[in-house]
């Protein structure tokens, strides 16, 4: 607990940044249900639970042509 309190200036922005990325990707997965590969059931856990890499892989490789 002590450590957590000491590091809040790091953890708060870190968590906000990761959440922003995950949520943006999540919304995109839901709203554009056409992917270069995979399906909704595959991409939702990928973008939500694999931090950073998940959304990056989705936007670079998974996203369909429709923006």
């Amino acid at each position: 607990m002590e450590t957590l309190r000491e590091y809040w200036p790091f953890l708060v922005p870190l968590i906000i940044a990761q959440l922003t990325l995950a949520i943006t990707a999540f919304v995109h997965v839901i709203r554009h249900p056409s992917y270069r590969f995979g399906n909704k059931v595959f991409w939702i856990p990928v973008v939500l639970f694999i931090s950073i890499i998940g959304p990056v892989v989705y936007f670079v490789f998974g996203r369909g042509d429709a923006e």
């Binding site: 790091f10 922005p13 870190l14 990325l21 943006t24 936007f59 670079v60």
Partner: peptide, 22 residues
Amino acid sequence: VKTYKLLLLGIVFLILGIMNPL
């Protein structure tokens, strides 16, 4: 901006920036 390149790079490099000293 529209294809999320800016957002992706901005956030990834922000996270890297925080992680380094931590």
